[in-house]
Design a protein around this nucleic acid. Structure first.
Lengths: 207, 207
DNA sequence: GGCTTGTGTCACTAACCGGTGATAGTTAAC
DNA sequence: GTTAACTATCACCGGTTAGTGACACAAGCC
């Protein structure tokens, strides 16, 4: 019976730091940034909040650590699946990138919460993440583009920004309320419609 | 010298109610929903928070009152300026609607904060406002469309939703951080670029 | 053995939050 | 003038927050 023993954990600063970081990320992904603070995180991690100050220097440092973490993950996540045929045109390439971004965002509640945070309040985590995301995205597009000709006479960066903005907004709205204007974003059928809409829109842009 | 007199205000329930409502809206528009609560609102309005409970039944009622207020305003705000020529094509119509929506949203911090709130947490104010906004928008488009032919073979509601989603996201990002991906949204030059991008995109959609 | 360093917990503060009951002051009806 | 209803304020409650100082314990070093 070890039910009475206070569960002697081995003391290890690295492990503890990682556990706090994981708990902070999980809490942010689950419940968003409302009520995201030292008390809740320490409680969820099972450690005293004092350790958040000791290992991260407070919430700001913790937020930075999360931003680094997520950014690093994103750099590796945004890649074309091996051996898939390279895109035949700029329009085709952007259509693929857009749909891939949509699916990646939709399956990542943590990124959603950070994006929503970005829109609600300027913060260290938000801006750091925003810049990292921008770099990862443009690097991804540049890699995918390869030697493809960018269409002439068109403000392609602007159109791409509009496309990505639309995707972000739809993912955030879908996660928050399950719909956007008339669209039903609660099940895969709705998202299939969005995917084909995004693909069609991209081709129309660069036709 | 009335500097010592406690500024005897005439007692008037209607005035007080309006003052509280105005303070609540102003506070929400300025600082967003973080820290938006009875204490801050009562302090800003210059009345005791008890009156919020008496006149609105609490924060929920106050939020509903704001939603009604903003919805009513929106119904009247989304109209084509008098005597402007009716649009010649569906594409032209949607381009105008999109740019008008962009400008309207951009000049309304309160609507921005409510939209951002919608994305962060489901709430009565958010959902009520969301539905009202949807109705106002579709009504507006229907009115503007008049007898124009909707393009065939195209999922127009989907494309319009993407367009509006992009606009919303850009306005929110611009207000929060002044930029989106590579775009600079801090001054009118950046927004001019967005406007022409939106107009071009709309025409490309419905070409 | 003793001692230092690192790890983790506890207890406490001051400030804020939403919410409520009692009370004072004003107005209006009678 | 008296009384009743309305308007507004105050003082407090329990709970939560961020942040800090003091303490207990473990590991390793000498």
């Amino acid at each position: 019976m070890d039910s009475e023993a206070p569960a002697k954990r081995p003391r290890n600063a690295a492990n503890t730091r990682a556990a706090i970081l994981a708990a902070a990320k999980a809490l942010l992904a689950e419940r968003g940034f409302a009520g995201w603070g030292v008390n809740a995180i320490a409680r969820a991690a099972g450690y005293d909040k004092q350790l958040i100050y000791r290992y991260f220097g407070g919430m700001d440092g913790l937020a930075e650590a999360i931003a680094e973490d997520v950014s690093a993950w994103m750099q590796t996540a945004l890649v074309r699946p091996d051996h898939s045929a390279p895109p035949a045109s700029y329009a085709e390439m952007m259509a693929r990138v857009a749909v891939a971004l949509l699916d990646a965002l939709r399956s990542d509640p943590l990124a959603q919460k950070i994006l929503a945070w970005e829109l609600s309040a300027p913060s260290k985590l938000a801006t750091a993440f925003s810049e990292a995301r921008g770099k990862a995205l443009s690097g991804w597009i540049a890699r995918e583009r390869g030697t493809l000709q960018r269409p002439a006479g068109i403000d392609a960066p602007m159109l791409n920004a509009l496309l990505i903005a639309a995707i972000q907004q739809l993912v955030l709205s879908g996660a928050a309320s399950g719909r956007f204007l008339g669209l039903d974003l609660r099940d895969d059928a709705g998202w299939d419609r969005v995917r084909s809409g995004v693909a069609g829109l991209t081709r129309a842009m660069y036709r």
